[in-house]
Design a protein around this nucleic acid. Structure first.
Length: 486
RNA sequence: GCGGGAUUGGUCUAGCCUGGUAGGAUGUCAGCCCCCCAAGCUGAAGGUCUCGGGUUCGAAUCCCGGAUCCCGCACCA
């Protein structure tokens, strides 16, 4: 299905909506989750916990969204997360100063020049606006972090642009209190904030967004030692696209043997990511890991793979897998003056980090897009049952006293354990179709026969098939249907 | 941020050029029907037409500005 159709479903059924929309000065890049969106997201995060956090016995934390200036001084975001930009004094067009100069003067600039040096280059080469030939103003740094002021003195702090910084600053305490041993992964689901110059495509590039990040701390000398843990993924195949554009489906063993993935540890986590997404309903034949070229990588990444999925608007990056080496920990150790070294194998080690950074909002978008189908004119959201926002619909076949009462009673009995909808409006077929559109996997209908033998009809979303079961068995049957696949 | 297009009940849309205060479809709700796969009947609710300013006796409609959305460019750690 297309972006427009997902967007429409979102607005009509209450998955997502633009933020502050009743005000005409509502800023772009902020979206709200409606009831179905929250439910879908919660189930997605539950699956993430199941398939990644618990499977690998990770430690999950929930850090603060506001962090001190020092954190980002150390992390490099104050400098590295800022781009030198220059605006035309006539038409206002904004250009990246470094790229614009490099391209037009045909020189290679060293990184992080002072603003004045860019100004000098622009003047020396008589560079004018690409758009209107107007004169450029002076170069300044545009930082993508939201700065906020704390307390009456307005002390400078920032909204975190990635959740992982919380893990880096908390790690040494966690390592000690949780009796951790390398390698150990920390996980976090939460919000991050980036002041995009111009966010586009509402659900896909937000200024406030959810991430689920996993930071694997390991001893670099131990990363390629085969261990039992990796046995399960040796023959697991993933599609990988190399820097040169070539694509191949290879097993994890092959990836490591051919040096495409640096070590067993990285291969293991790439496989876990692929396994996780294969359970979300995303079409894995449209998914790949893409090796990033040096100039595509984040400033902290020594090697990087993006997990991408093909959607109606092109390949979409859902997960960034970065080898951050000891970049973060040595920077934080240096800036804070604290030792972040731990003991491993009777030696002092500054751990290296492999990161799995998942974009939640765009993952949910992709799941919706891949799940929406038309089945003989029927609008169907074919989500895995364990991700469906509503699990059970309960209907009286007809709105007559005995039947209605029993349907309500059955609904009462289910509503605390599941997300349910009771619906008595319109024909029975209409009510089934309403639930199909939301992805509800199960509908229970109470009819005349129910009054005599306490049985009900259980109707399944995908097959439209019906089962006749005793009302005492409803709970068991629902649990069966919505249980996770092995 | 630049250029272009757009913005009318929950959703889609007519009306705009040729100013005279909104019409439809679908959805929703109530009643009828009483039905196991939507789109049968009757009725109802829901819009100060994105926001602000201007022109005019009068603005959804014309003009200016802001916001948002879409498309290109730039940006995307």
């Amino acid at each position: 299905m297309s972006y427009d159709e997902v967007y429409k479903l979102s607005l009509e059924k209450g998955f997502f909506a633009p933020g502050s929309e009743i005000y005409s000065d509502a800023p772009a890049g902020f979206w709200e989750y409606g009831p179905l969106g929250v439910s879908l997201r919660n189930r997605y995060v539950d699956l993430w916990r199941r398939e990644l956090v618990r499977r690998d016995q990770m430690l999950e934390i929930d850090g603060s969204q506001v962090m001190s200036k020092s954190v980002f001084k150390a992390s490099g975001h104050l400098d590295g997360f800022a781009d030198p930009i220059v605006a035309c004094s006539k038409c206002g067009t904004i250009a990246r100063a470094d790229r614009m100069i490099a391209e037009r003067v045909r020189i290679t600039l060293s990184e992080n020049l002072a603003d004045a040096q860019y100004d000098k280059l622009i003047e020396e080469n008589k560079l004018t606006c690409v758009n209107c030939k107007g004169r450029y103003g002076s170069v300044r740094k545009f930082n993508m972090m939201f700065r906020i002021g704390i307390g009456p003195r307005d002390e400078g702090a920032y909204l975190r642009p990635e959740t992982c910084q919380s893990i880096f600053v908390d790690y040494i305490r966690l390592f000690k209190t949780m009796r951790a041993k390398l390698p150990i992964a920390f996980a976090q689901f939460g919000k991050s904030f980036r002041n995009e110059i111009s966010p586009r495509q509402g659900l896909l590039r937000l200024r406030e967004f959810y991430q689920a990040e996993i930071e694997v701390f390991f001893n670099p000398e131990q990363a390629n030692i085969p261990s039992k843990k990796y046995d399960g993924i040796r023959d697991y195949a993933i599609t990988i696209t190399r820097e040169d554009g070539s694509s191949a489906k290879m097993t994890c063993s092959e990836l490591v043997q051919h040096g495409i993935v640096l070590n067993w540890l990285f291969a293991y986590y790439l496989a876990l990511v692929a396994k996780f997404y294969s359970k979300t309903g995303i079409d894995m034949s449209k998914a790949r890991f893409r090796e990033l070229a040096r100039d595509e990588r984040a400033f902290y990444a020594a090697s990087a793979y993006d997990f991408e999925v093909k959607t109606s608007i092109g390949w979409l990056e859902l997960v960034a897998c970065n080898y951050r080496s000891d970049y973060d920990l040595s920077a934080h150790a240096k800036t804070s003056g604290r030792s972040l070294v731990v003991e491993d194998d009777n030696r002092k080690v500054l751990p290296h980090i492999f990161e799995i950074s998942m974009g939640i909002d765009r993952s949910l978008y992709t799941i919706l897009e891949h799940s929406m189908i038309k089945d003989n004119g029927r609008n169907l959201l074919r989500l895995p049952a364990y991700l469906s926002p509503v699990q059970v619909g309960v209907f009286p076949l007809v709105n007559k006293n005995g039947i209605r009462d029993m349907a309500k009673q059955i609904h009462e009995g289910l509503k605390l354990d599941y997300d349910t909808i009771y619906d008595s409006a319109g024909s029975i077929g209409r009510r089934y179709r309403r639930q199909d559109e939301l992805g509800t996997p199960i509908c229970i209908t109470v009819d005349y026969a129910s009054l005599t033998d306490d049985s009900v009809t259980l109707r399944l979303r995908d097959s439209m098939g019906q089962e006749r079961i005793h009302r005492n068995k409803i709970g068991n049957r629902i649990s069966e249907i919505i249980s996770y696949i092995a």
